[in-house]
Design a protein around this nucleic acid. Structure first.
Lengths: 246, 246
DNA sequence: TTGCTCCTCACGTCACGTGAGGTGGC
DNA sequence: TTGCTCCTCACGTCACGTGAGGTGGC
């Protein structure tokens, strides 16, 4: 009868929560109304209201309902510990999501200056960039990124074409069965090293990333079908034979 | 019969996914195996595998399975748009969580220099800080924070005590029925303005925050029971009567 | 016949939103 | 009697994990 008891709807109104939310807290035992009318209406006492405000305060900090229940029941500095724990988790989540955000941004930037925008399969490009990111260090990626921006799309395309031409020429020699030490393969080999140096810029981190990429994924996958194991083996022999032809 | 068909377990192994995950993708229609054995075993074709790799790539970027399905089926640059949209959402989430992180950190810092650490009700302190944060701008909060750090706990405690003393003295005058224009209330009123200026440091943002706090929440709530409406009204009359007693 | 792989349910997760269907109080 | 509030189910959300209970293949 005491007029300071509140029915669900009233409590919902003053706290700006929904009735369903209060039902839910009742269901899971987080906030049971201390009384009911004979017809089953929930009646919340001032103490219940007090507890609800505490629940809402902790919920506003992102704590889970179960954690909140424990913190409220343990009292003392239990809340402090719960908040601290929650902060730690949040920090970790933030680090992970920040990394993801950076990856997404890099990928989108990459997609925008991708070789042939019209025919390009975007998801394919995403897969490639994901693969690349697994092998290069963040610093190496930053350098590659920087370089790509500096070069501009036409230059990048030019380098791509140069590689395609070189690979075609080298493959032709393989088909002809030319000895790796012969002048033409040697000339192509020198060109190969030249383009490689152009790519790595002599940077050891980029070199290591590139090696890791081809070692772990295999030439075919790493080059997305542009090269294969046979080609790589032949090029290897060409490099080994440097000077022998003289 | 072609040996490039994979059973679930095999596909799970090479992709490092679980069998349940593949079942799930089948259930929701994201990746249906293109064939089954007569006994019902799922058989994944190389094309299915290809699709799965694309799914995994997009999933790794945090896209939802439904979004992934749409992006894969729309093809073209649908993926690009989906990734861009996802990035936008992620940015927003990051902003919100960063804010929350800062709030949590501020609250914990506040809890650590709270008046009486032993008897303090932490959740109560959290509620108070939450209320405070609703009324001060971030800049004002930063200034208050900075000042509290500069003052140190003893100074803060001293100021608290000064206020308590002043409130008690003012309340005593109310009980005695002293006229607001009388010398003693006027002396206390001057002290009141002095302590207020000490708190606001003359900063207009802090002033506005404080006003908003007492206006919106009421003196009793804002001061956590230290003051009430009657006291505030009396103090108001004291301030209005400045100079009249002379 | 014994392991191994596969199959299809089906519950649980987190914090409620959203009805459905029905009853008490002014 | 008519609105308004209240009540108790119960499904759905997101991407699976984790059994349960049973069957096919070497």
């Amino acid at each position: 009868m005491s007029s300071n008891q509140l029915k669900v709807g009233e409590l919902a109104r003053v706290t700006r929560l929904t009735v369903r939310t209060l039902h839910h807290y009742d269901e899971i035992g987080l906030l049971r109304p201390s009384d009911r009318t004979y017809s089953g209406y929930r009646l919340y006492s001032p103490e219940d209201v007090r507890r609800l405000y505490r629940i809402v305060a902790l919920r506003g900090l992102g704590l889970g309902l179960e954690e909140i229940g424990e913190a409220l029941d343990r009292e003392g500095s239990g809340a402090r510990e719960a908040v601290q724990r929650h902060l730690d988790e949040l920090e970790q989540e933030l680090r992970a999501k920040t990394d993801l955000r950076d990856r997404l941004a890099r990928i989108l930037a990459g997609l925008d200056r991708v070789d042939e925008p019209a025919t390009t399969d975007y998801i394919d490009a995403i897969e490639r960039m994901t693969m690349i990111e697994r092998h290069y260090t963040p610093e190496a990626l930053a350098k590659l990124e920087e370089r790509a921006t500096a070069y501009g799309p036409e230059q990048m395309q030019k380098v791509q074409d140069d590689w395609a031409e070189l690979i075609a020429a080298m493959t032709a020699e393989i088909k002809k069965g030319t000895d790796p030490a012969d002048p033409e393969p040697q000339r192509l080999g020198a060109r190969w090293r030249e383009l490689l140096t152009l790519f790595t810029g002599g940077d050891p981190e980029i070199k290591e990333g590139l090696n890791s990429l081809y070692r772990e994924e295999g030439a075919e996958v790493a080059s997305r079908g542009a090269m294969d194991a046979e080609l790589m083996a032949y090029v290897g022999r060409v490099h080994e034979a440097v000077g022998e032809g003289a």
